[in-house]
Simulated assay, not measured.
Amino acid sequence: MSVPDRSPHQVVGPNLVDMEVMRNHSELFRAECMRLIMETCTACKRMQNDDNKQLDQRVRDIQFLEKELELKLEEIIVEIDVLIRLQSRVEIALEACKEPLRVTIVCLEERMKRLPSERRHDDVDRELLKEREVTEGAASILRRVTEQITEQIRLSRSIKYQLEQDMKAKSEAQCIDNSCALMTTGSMDNLLRPKNNQIVLPSLAVTPKQWENISDINIAKAEQQKADSLSLRALVDSVLEQTAADMQKQVQATATALQLNVQEIRSAKSQMEDQLVKILCEFASQQRIREDLQVAIVENQRVLSLAQARLTLRRQRPAKEQCHDPAQSQLLAEVQQLNAHINKLREAVTQSEDEQRALVRCQLELHENMAIKASSLYIDEVICAQHRETLIIHSF
Score class of each variant (00 low, 15 high):
Met1Ile: 09
Ser2Asp: 12
Val3Met: 12
Pro8Asn: 13
His9Leu: 06
Val12Trp: 06
Val17Gly: 05
His25Phe: 09
Arg30Ser: 11
Cys33Tyr: 11
Ala43Glu: 03
Gln48Cys: 12
Gln54Asp: 05
Val59Ile: 10
Arg60Met: 09
Asp61Ala: 10
Leu65Thr: 05
Glu70Ser: 15
Ile77Arg: 14
Asp81Ala: 13
Arg85Ser: 10
Glu91His: 06
Ala96Glu: 11
Ala96Asp: 12
Glu99Lys: 12
Pro100Leu: 00
Thr104Pro: 00
Thr104Trp: 00
Ile105Glu: 11
Leu108Met: 14
Leu108Lys: 13
Arg111Ala: 02
Met112Ser: 15
Ser117Leu: 07
Glu118Cys: 07
Glu133Arg: 12
Ala138Met: 02
Ala138Leu: 01
Ile141Pro: 01
Arg144Leu: 10
Gln148Met: 11
Ile149Glu: 01
Ser158Trp: 05
Glu164Trp: 03
Gln174Asn: 07
Asn178Ala: 05
Ser179Pro: 00
Cys180Ala: 05
Met183Gln: 08
Lys195Arg: 15
Lys195Gly: 09
Ile199Phe: 05
Ile199Trp: 02
Leu201Cys: 04
Leu201Ala: 08
Ala205Arg: 08
Ala205Trp: 03
Asn213Ala: 13
Lys221Cys: 12
Ala222Asp: 02
Ala222Pro: 01
Ala227Pro: 00
Asp228Arg: 08
Ser229Arg: 00
Arg233Asp: 02
Gln242Glu: 13
Met247Val: 03
Lys249Thr: 15
Thr254Phe: 09
Ala255Lys: 09
Asn261Tyr: 09
Ala268Trp: 00
Ser270His: 10
Gln275Arg: 15
Val277Ala: 06
Lys278Arg: 13
Arg290Pro: 01
Asn300Phe: 04
Gln301Tyr: 00
Leu313Tyr: 04
Gln316Ser: 10
Gln316Arg: 15
Cys323Gly: 09
Glu334Lys: 05
Gln337Phe: 04
Ala340Thr: 11
Ser352Arg: 02
Asp354Cys: 15
Ala358Arg: 11
Val360Lys: 08
Gln363Gly: 14
Ile372Glu: 13
Asp380Thr: 02
Val382Tyr: 04
Ile383Ser: 13
Thr390Glu: 11
Ile393Lys: 02
Ser395Ala: 06
